[in-house]
């Protein structure tokens, strides 16, 4: 975990149970890609991943790499040390991907002082390997424009 003053190693990240639909999301980071399910008929992105398009009812749905860019929809600066050794403060956030507003990802905003995180702030993805998964994390995108 970045942007903490304590210098101690954070506790290991917990990991999700992965199933046949979410496998790609949690592993595509090995190739440096953020992959989101997308309807092959109407191009709608579908998250959480399931092979059904709620827009056109197509079952032709495949994971596709997206730009990895997005913006902070909301965030909270956590100050409470919930477990021993947890470096605080840190930022939990919801990020909307650049391609489609209703695809939101939970994440931590990294490589940024918590007090500088803001609503609509442009961010870009990177990945941290934990065991057999690649966890998407976001950091400030100096080339992006803030969302109003």
């Amino acid at each position: 975990m970045a942007s903490t003053a304590s210098g101690t190693a954070p506790p290991p990240r917990s990991l999700p149970v992965v199933d046949k639909d979410s496998q790609t999301f949690w592993t595509a980071g090995e190739q440096g890609e953020l992959k989101i399910y997308r309807c092959q008929d109407c191009a709608y992105y579908i998250h959480p991943p399931v092979r059904f398009c709620p827009q056109c009812e197509s079952r032709r749905v495949e994971p596709e790499a997206v730009s990895g860019k997005g913006h902070v929809v909301s965030f909270s600066i956590n100050h409470q040390q919930w477990v021993p050794g947890l470096p605080v403060p840190y930022v939990l956030a919801l990020v909307g991907i650049a391609e489609q507003d209703d695809v939101r990802l939970v994440t931590n905003i990294m490589n940024c002082p918590p007090e500088e995180v803001s609503f609509g702030m442009p961010v870009k993805v990177y990945f941290e390997q934990v065991e057999d998964l690649w966890v998407p994390l976001f950091e400030p995108d100096s080339e992006g424009a803030p969302r109003p």
Partner: peptide, 16 residues
């Protein structure tokens, strides 16, 4: 979907 992000409590998660 919150699992890897140090989401320890409803207080933090609902603060979003």
């Amino acid at each position: 979907w919150y699992a890897p992000y140090y989401n320890y409590a409803a207080a933090l998660q609902q603060s979003l």
